[in-house]
């Protein structure tokens, strides 16, 4: 769901979180800033303890897209695990080796898709 700016622009809401033990949140911060500069409202949630916490945050924030940054040891399919609980919200996984550009593109594309 988008919010109409009244004129023409629409803002997408994105939740950005980390799961597991990522090496740091520098990448996530740059991704957040890039998205902000594209006009997106980014809820920066930081490190989450569990998938259930991510589901709760995504629901409360009523976002369009959740980007989950995983650590290298994590072979989890996040969107398969929680996507079902989040109808209407896209869950995308940000692999640890993704560049900022790739991550931004993945999130943008998910936000542009229709339900």
């Amino acid at each position: 769901m988008r919010q109409d700016e009244g004129l023409t622009r629409s803002v997408t809401r994105v939740l950005l979180v980390q799961l597991g033990n990522p090496v740091g949140d520098e990448i996530a911060q740059v991704v957040a800033r890039s998205l902000r500069d594209l006009g997106v409202d980014v809820v920066y949630g930081g490190l989450q303890d569990s998938l259930q916490d991510i589901v709760q945050a995504a629901m409360q924030e009523d976002v369009d897209v959740v980007g989950v940054q995983l650590d290298s040891g994590n072979a989890l399919d996040v969107s398969e695990k929680i996507g079902g609980q989040l109808s209407g919200i896209k869950v995308v996984q940000l692999a640890p080796n993704m560049t900022v550009e790739e991550a931004v593109t993945v999130i943008k594309e998910a936000g542009a898709q229709d339900d």
Binding site: R9, A32, R33, D37, G39, V42, G45, G46, L47, Q56
Partner: peptide, 20 residues
């Protein structure tokens, strides 16, 4: 941001103790 209209909403990050 006054430039892009986007925002980084960082308050939630400080409240992770309330998760769950």
């Amino acid at each position: 941001s006054p430039f892009s209209g986007g925002a980084i909403l960082g308050d939630r990050l400080r409240m992770t103790g309330l998760a769950g």
